[in-house]
């Protein structure tokens, strides 16, 4: 039995003030806030730092940007990985022949 979506029925009392969090608009606002913080952070660093984007004497550049790009690439590559090496959920139990058709696994 499931309750109607976006309904406060069945909600925990502590969660009721936060019921709006599940709306698409709330997600978009959160995303925009995070984006502003990210861009602002790098901008602030560029302005304040003497040697450009550097935090440590030995490490130059906004090195945090590269892992972010890498994370984005990894997420996109995940599609290829799913296509390449994903199999049906019962792949092991059925393919090995240790579960017969109709048997609950």
């Amino acid at each position: 039995m499931t309750a109607p979506r976006d309904s406060k029925a069945g909600m925990h009392p502590l969660a009721r003030p936060l019921s709006g969090l599940s709306s698409p608009r709330a997600g978009l606002i959160a995303l925009i806030v995070i984006a502003v913080l990210v861009v602002g952070g790098f901008a602030l660093e560029t302005v304040l730092s003497d040697g450009g984007l550097s935090k440590y004497p030995e490490v130059y550049g906004a090195y945090e940007l590269l892992p972010l790009a890498a994370a984005a690439v990894a997420i996109l590559l995940g599609w290829g990985l799913v296509w390449l090496i994903s199999r049906p959920g019962d792949f092991y139990s059925r393919a090995a022949g240790d579960v017969t058709e109709g048997q609950d696994d």
Partner: peptide
């Protein structure tokens, strides 16, 4: 924050590769 942004964008544009009932 940057990783949260990447994660959020992937979700927003439905780019997160998640499928049910797959091994």
């Amino acid at each position: 924050l940057g990783t949260m942004l990447v994660f959020g964008l992937a979700l927003y544009f439905k780019l997160f590769p998640l499928k049910s009932d797959r091994t």
